[in-house]
Design a protein around this nucleic acid. Structure first.
Length: 798
RNA sequence: GCCCGGGUGGCGGAAUUGGUAUACGCGCACGACUCAAAAUCGUGUCUCGCAAGGGUUGUGGGUUCGACUCCCACCCCGGGCACCA
């Protein structure tokens, strides 16, 4: 009869005791222990924890706990990402103030987080919307401003008509707002930006040295979108002006028969255009289109800038200039030359009857009539002709030579500077004030935190809510003088969370945002896991922050995260995404009430490989299976006694210690759980379970099942916490028993297995096969060859 | 279109990195216990075959004594970028 397993009682008991004993408070340094920083993305206070949160926080806790047992001083912190759109929208939906909402929901979530039984150090917790935190967000803004990395710029920006604010490029997914899915519009506005583009090269090249999964690196490279090419000046005929184009294919320059300028290009306004009215109409129409419409429109449109002629610098030929919306204002120079070796240029030229001039033939010398008569567009690299002194060269040879003669080598990026202004209330106020002439000035440090006023009308209405605050207006006039006005935009929430990991390690510091001393003790983060959707947003931004601060001497690291991992997602039982709309959500609180936090944690660990991004359907049956496993472990304790550890059991114990430890280290929790099941199944077969063996099982299981293992450990007459025990070590010489199984093959096909003593020679194994009734018949008597892999395979080749 | 992953039972997934494919769990079937059911325990469970045997890791080829693993071509799924010059 198995002992009862009252998870509610056990989990409550140990959570209280841990808190009382401050078991998980992490000192900055412990003699004889190395510091180890492991991090998970902190939640925004949504009011309720869902299964995804359990997957995000309770599963990596297994890793943190093993590291603790392995003798590291482990920091596993948690806090709330409380500023920003999600939190504010949640508050507005419930019709209460964001500050109240944050307080209320953070309190409830804290309780839910506690129920996971994680080894979070709550003494270091932080909330980004608290003045003690955001004063440092503002301080960092001022540092960026000082270094010219924060600037005010005018240009076309993404505008979400639903959230009533501008958005960074990273927050626009397929032309829609990532939060509310409204189609994003383009607006010409003056906004604050961070110069992340200055770091584009380093953000790419430093990836090489990082031990990160390739897909994450690749996604960042794609996002930054580095292109090498050349800038080439095309002088305008009968004018001192010129248009500069960017191209990645300077080898086709001789065939450049027209220029294309982006409709939004500011230069259009100043060019001597004869058909000004027509052009202006086109520009207006193009700009009214959303990004989605523009991309969706396969048909290219454009208008010729009559009266404007550019000169191809290679030939001196005058060529027409067109405005067309397939040219993008913010890529390269916003101007390109059209030629016969680019599909888009050819399609455009054919539509409008612009002449084309092919200048490349295939490298292999194959027939190129179809290319010459323009029935096929050849985009590859080839051999040049009709290209002056460069005729006969290959594209690769010609590119650098033509660049040298007519232009300058240049690198450009898809990445745009980070737009950080938000026309919303719930964010850190940008610490800038304007003098009566409208010039910006930083708010002096002594006035930080530059408090978010409480008297503003927070409803989003397209202009910054802070503009409605009398208190802020008066504050500015009082401090700076009559006619001075405040900046009324707040900062993007992603600014707050670009540096939070540096605050956990020095959370109470009132003099610095994060001291170098603490950074030296803790940084870099050894393991960082989070959602795949943050790859080109938060992860990129925080890398940029770290690098910028590193250059200012404010951080010790050039890269914040030693290892970054993206987590998969937990689907509903029906294989779809969990959604209130489908009514298929799983409430973790209910599951915890039914089977306990320990079972839920272990089930999520068991569901699939944590180190791979996948989608895993929830299975209540699977959860029950894990609960049964834990009940069996409880049942085992009845049979624990002073038994002798057999040779076979010793091998299994050593194998288990190795497997479980290694798999936790690489976040393959599913296979460590499987090994623990194997071990406990084997122990269950014994009449008496040696105490020593049972206690090894408990220690290996403790990171997964922290409450129950503590209870069972105490029942074995221990007074200290199992979580303060050392992680078991294995003896590499005892990973194999005296006997090994050897597969017997004929021509590579397995016919059976044979048991041989460890270290058996080929002759001995052959003799065993000959002695086996069944195998004797199947194996050739006179094989042409025998392949023998000691301890593994004997292969008879006919 | 370019670039990353991936394709293994009814399902989630294993496979010591070239060496017994399908571990572990779920589900299912049968049995034990029970008046019965649930729970629990036991046995079985890739496939064809009564068996002896044979076949099987998306498809087709190749390398090798031996391929889920390496190479080539193709198909499909997931993800990133995308009128980026």
């Amino acid at each position: 009869m198995a002992k009862s397993y009252d998870h509610k009682k056990i989990e409550k008991k140990w959570q209280e005791r841990w808190e009382k004993q401050k078991l998980y408070e992490t000192p900055d340094a412990v003699a004889g222990k190395k510091n180890f920083y492991t991090l998970v993305e902190f939640p925004y206070p949504s009011g309720d924890l869902h299964v995804g949160h359990w997957d995000a926080f309770a599963v990596p806790d297994i890793f943190a706990r093993m590291k603790r047992m392995q003798g590291f001083n482990v920091l596993y912190p948690i806090g709330f990402d409380a500023f920003g759109l999600p939190a504010e929208n949640a508050a507005i939906k419930r019709n209460i103030g964001p500050a109240e909402w944050i307080e209320e929901s953070a309190m409830r979530m804290r309780g839910q987080l506690m129920s996971m039984g994680n080894c979070f150090d709550w003494s270091r917790t932080l909330t980004t919307s608290e003045p003690s935190y955001y004063r440092w967000t503002q301080w960092l803004f001022l540092k960026f401003y000082e270094k010219g990395l924060a600037y005010r710029g005018t240009g076309l920006v993404n505008w979400c008509p639903n959230d009533q604010t501008v958005l960074a490029n990273e927050q626009v997914v397929d032309g829609k707002c990532e939060r509310c899915a409204a189609v994003v519009e383009q607006k010409e506005l003056e906004q604050w930006f961070f110069k992340i583009r200055d770091y584009a090269d380093r953000l790419i090249s430093d990836l090489d040295s990082l031990d990160w999964p390739e897909p994450i690196k690749e996604a960042q490279r794609n996002w930054i979108g580095r292109s090498e090419g050349a800038e080439i000046d095309f002088p305008l005929a009968r004018s001192g002006e010129k248009l500069t184009v960017f191209t990645t294919r300077p080898d086709t320059l001789y065939g450049g028969t027209f220029l294309v300028i982006a409709p939004e290009h500011p230069l259009i306004a100043s060019l001597p255009i004869e058909n000004r009215k027509e052009v202006d109409t086109y520009v207006k129409k193009a700009m009214a289109k959303s990004e989605i419409e523009r991309i969706g429109d396969k048909e290219k449109t454009g208008v010729e800038l009559k009266g404007v002629k550019a000169v191809n610098p290679t030939t001196g030929v005058e060529i027409p200039v067109w405005a067309a919306d397939y040219a993008i204002a913010h890529f390269g120079t916003g101007v390109l030359f059209g030629d016969a070796h680019d599909e888009r240029d050819v399609a455009f030229a054919k539509k409008y009857g612009i002449p084309l001039k092919p200048t490349l033939k295939p490298l292999d010398g194959s027939d190129d009539t179809d290319i010459k008569n323009l029935s096929r567009c050849f985009e590859g690299k080839g051999i040049l002709y009709d290209s002056g002194e460069f005729s006969g060269l290959t594209s690769d040879e010609a590119m650098s030579k033509i660049t040298e003669k007519f232009g300058t080598a240049k690198v450009t990026y898809k990445l745009r500077d980070w737009l950080i202004s938000r026309q919303r209330y719930w964010g850190a106020p940008i610490p800038i004030v304007y003098d009566p002439e409208g010039r910006p000035h930083p708010v002096p440090e002594e006035h930080l935190p530059w408090l978010l006023p409480t008297d503003a009308d927070i409803k989003p209405k397209g202009t910054s809510p802070l503009g409605s605050s009398k208190e802020l207006k008066q504050r500015v006039e009082k401090l700076f003088g009559k006619g001075w006005t405040p900046e009324t935009d707040t900062m993007d929430g992603f600014v707050d969370n670009s540096w939070y990991f540096l605050r956990y390690i020095d959370p109470k510091n009132e003099k610095e945002f994060s001291s170098i001393k603490r950074q030296k003790e803790w940084m870099p983060v050894q393991r960082y896991s989070g959602g795949a959707e943050h790859t080109t947003v938060h992860v990129l931004y925080s890398r940029f922050f770290t690098k910028a601060l590193f250059d200012m001497g404010l951080t010790t690291e050039n890269e914040p995260y030693k290892v970054r991992m993206n987590r998969g997602i937990i689907l509903a039982e029906d294989g779809r995404k969990m959604s209130k709309r489908w009514g298929n959500t799983v409430n973790p609180d209910e599951q915890v009430a039914n089977v306990g936090a320990d079972a839920v944690r272990t089930y999520l660990a068991f569901i699939g490989p944590y180190n791979e991004v996948g989608s895993f359907p929830w299975s209540t049956n699977g959860l029950v299976g894990v609960r049964r496993f834990l009940e069996r472990v409880v049942g085992l304790s009845d049979k624990v006694g002073d038994g002798h550890v057999s040779a076979d059991l010793e091998v299994l114990l050593n194998q288990s210690i190795k497997k479980v430890g290694e798999d936790i280290e690489s976040m393959k929790f599913n296979t460590s759980v499987s090994q623990l099941m194997i071990l406990s199944n084997e122990l269950g077969k014994l009449q008496t379970i040696p105490k020593q063996a049972y206690e090894i099982l408990l220690k290996l299981l403790a990171p997964f099942v922290p409450h129950l293992c503590e209870e069972l450990w105490e029942a074995q007459a221990h007074t200290g916490s199992i979580h303060l025990e050392g992680w078991p070590s294995f003896d590499p010489s005892k990973l194999q028993g005296g006997e090994v199984t050897i597969a017997v093959q004929v021509g590579g096909k397995t016919k059976g297995i044979i048991l041989a003593k460890q270290g058996a020679t080929e002759g001995e194994v052959v003799a065993l096969v000959r002695a086996d009734q069944k195998l004797k018949k199947m194996t050739p008597e006179r094989p042409s060859r025998v392949v023998f892999v000691p301890g593994k395979i004997i292969n008879f080749i006919v």
